[in-house]
Amino acid sequence: MLDSGLSPEDFKLAFRHHAAGVAVITADAGDGPVGITVSSVFSVSAEPPLMVFSISGRSFSAPTIRRAETLVIHLLSAQQLNIARLCSTSGIDRFADTSIWSRLPTGEPHFPGVPVWIRGRVINRMEAGDSTVIAVHALESVHADIQTETPLVYHNRSWHALGDASQLDG
């Protein structure tokens, strides 16, 4: 049994000062597309190409993403703030506007306007507290001219654009 540890409020406060890249995960396990905004995506291995992310069990999208065999991870730039906001807003149909999303030939929903997306197969799931950690094997990716894109990051409960002015060394 774990010690009681930090309170949820203290834990969240500590992580508010840890900036993280913003991604949107989309999937369809057979009952319609879902999408969720996360800041927990990171690469684990280049060979084989593996990534992980976590989702809260309280999310409306969590049951579908947990059941999905494949999904799409969209790595957002600041130009896609609207998609980050869309997929982080509760109580709406995130796929109502059919002009901003489509399906890949393999069936997964995706946002084609995002500069980098990676389609992957779920290879492992682990329950961790009130969340699920999901490991994904990358199968294919599309990346536009990412040199012109400004990464979107989440810090201290707000969105930020990471730009050249934030670079500390040359």
Rank of each mutant, 00 (worst) to 15 (best):
D28R: 04
V22G: 08
A29I: 02
F15K: 00
L6R: 06
L13R: 13
V24M: 07
G30W: 00
V24E: 10
P33H: 04
M1Y: 09
A20V: 05
L2T: 13
G30Q: 03
G21A: 09
L2V: 12
A20D: 06
D10E: 09
G30P: 03
A27E: 06
A14D: 03
A29H: 02
G5H: 12
L6S: 05
K12P: 14
D28M: 08
V34M: 11
K12C: 06
G21F: 01
A14Y: 08
L2H: 09
D28L: 05
H18Q: 01
G35R: 11
D10P: 06
H18T: 07
F15S: 00
D10T: 08
F11Q: 07
H18N: 00
R16F: 07
A23W: 11
E9L: 11
H17E: 02
A23E: 13
D10Y: 03
G21I: 07
F15T: 05
F11A: 01
D3C: 11
A23K: 10
G5T: 03
I25E: 07
S4L: 08
S7M: 03
A20S: 14
L6K: 11
G35D: 11
L6F: 14
L6C: 01
A29Y: 00
D3L: 15
M1C: 10
G30C: 06
A19H: 00
D3V: 12
A19V: 02
A29D: 04
K12E: 04
A27I: 08
G30F: 00
H17N: 10
A27N: 06
F11H: 14
H17D: 02
T26Q: 10
I25Q: 03
T26K: 05
G30T: 04
L6A: 10
E9D: 15
A23D: 13
